[in-house]
Computed example of a mutant assay.
Amino acid sequence: MKTIVICSGGLDSVSLAHMVAAEHQLTRLVSFDYGQRHRKELDFAARCAGRLGVPHDIIDLRGIGAALTGSALTDDVDVPDGHYAEESMRITVVPNRNAIMLAVAFGVAAANSDDAVATAVHGGDHFIYPDCRPAFTQAFEAMQKAALDGYADVSLYTPFVNRTKADIVTAGARHSTPFADTWSCYKGGAVHCGRCGTCVERREAFDLAGITDPTTYADPDFWAHAIATKEGV
């Protein structure tokens, strides 16, 4: 199955790219610059493409991102600390982000005669991000089937949509993903902050998977406090 992967440069999408390269026919990586403050993640996506020997398209969506105001990822709003399962993390939602990116990726796939678009949405995203939930991915694929009817037949591949981030770490390790060469932190500093939702989730995933986390965190111990707070301990 000729498959393109939407790759941010994060742990999830880079692990997915390595898995697709091993199990299917990876044809290219597609990344998006939507004005995110952690734009450095795109450098990690580029390195992934180079490592896997496929083309890498970076699509400029900065104009669209600027119009999607109110998110801590694109505006001058502080990225909150804590676990994703906290209400405060809703400030990291970029409205319709995945729907916009997927629509573009499906066009790229159709233009290049690819069979599928793969994205690394997973179960841990469901609480905060509506465009990561199974109801969305199923409806989106049906919409794209109608949009491309008679021109191309492109499927949406979401192997992690009902799985955890720990499952992604396990799958990534199985396919020799270089986790140290991925970027998750929403704050975009010199090293992972260790405090934002995506850093906490990343650190927790390695712990649950029983796999050593090679990431350098500015605050390597905060995650345990965040987990305890989430669980009411």
Score class of each variant (00 low, 15 high):
residue 43 D to R: 07
residue 151 Y to T: 11
residue 91 I to V: 11
residue 90 R to C: 00
residue 151 Y to F: 13
residue 72 A to P: 00
residue 108 V to C: 05
residue 168 I to N: 10
residue 106 F to S: 06
residue 155 S to N: 10
residue 216 T to N: 03
residue 6 I to M: 05
residue 230 K to Y: 09
residue 183 W to I: 06
residue 142 A to F: 14
residue 102 L to P: 01
residue 99 A to V: 05
residue 32 F to Q: 05
residue 22 A to L: 14
residue 110 A to P: 07
residue 18 H to L: 13
residue 75 D to L: 06
residue 97 R to V: 00
residue 196 C to T: 11
residue 167 D to Q: 12
residue 225 H to V: 14
residue 230 K to I: 11
residue 204 E to N: 08
residue 29 L to V: 04
residue 103 A to Y: 13
residue 86 E to K: 03
residue 119 T to N: 12
residue 19 M to I: 01
residue 17 A to I: 03
residue 14 V to N: 01
residue 118 A to Q: 07
residue 189 G to V: 10
residue 139 A to D: 12
residue 8 S to K: 08
residue 6 I to D: 00
residue 154 V to A: 00
residue 149 D to H: 14
residue 121 V to G: 06
residue 231 E to L: 12
residue 221 D to A: 12
residue 93 V to Q: 15
residue 187 K to P: 02
residue 48 C to P: 09
residue 160 F to Q: 05
residue 1 M to E: 08
residue 110 A to R: 15
residue 77 V to P: 15
residue 226 A to D: 15
residue 180 A to V: 14
residue 33 D to K: 06
residue 97 R to C: 09
residue 181 D to M: 14
residue 162 N to F: 14
residue 211 I to T: 11
residue 217 Y to N: 08
residue 208 L to K: 12
residue 118 A to P: 03
residue 73 L to Y: 02
residue 126 H to Q: 11
residue 154 V to K: 09
residue 43 D to G: 07
residue 211 I to M: 04
residue 13 S to G: 07
residue 124 G to Y: 02
residue 187 K to I: 04
residue 91 I to N: 10
residue 122 H to I: 02
residue 42 L to H: 12
residue 182 T to N: 03
residue 110 A to W: 10
residue 131 D to S: 08
residue 76 D to C: 06
residue 231 E to S: 02
residue 79 V to I: 02
residue 171 A to T: 11
residue 187 K to G: 04
residue 146 A to T: 15
residue 27 T to N: 03
residue 142 A to K: 14
residue 67 A to S: 14
residue 160 F to K: 01
residue 80 P to E: 00
residue 10 G to E: 00
residue 204 E to I: 07
residue 106 F to G: 06
residue 184 S to Q: 05
residue 222 F to V: 02
residue 19 M to D: 03
residue 107 G to A: 14
residue 97 R to L: 08
residue 233 V to Y: 11
residue 198 T to Y: 01
residue 220 P to C: 01
residue 92 T to S: 11
residue 21 A to P: 13
residue 43 D to S: 08
residue 62 R to T: 03
residue 132 C to G: 12
residue 40 K to V: 13
residue 153 D to Y: 02
residue 160 F to V: 03
residue 111 A to S: 15
residue 44 F to K: 01
residue 64 I to A: 15
residue 218 A to N: 13
residue 63 G to T: 03
residue 136 F to S: 12
residue 164 T to F: 01
residue 218 A to F: 10
residue 121 V to Q: 01
residue 20 V to E: 11
residue 90 R to E: 00
residue 194 G to Y: 11
residue 194 G to K: 09
residue 8 S to G: 00
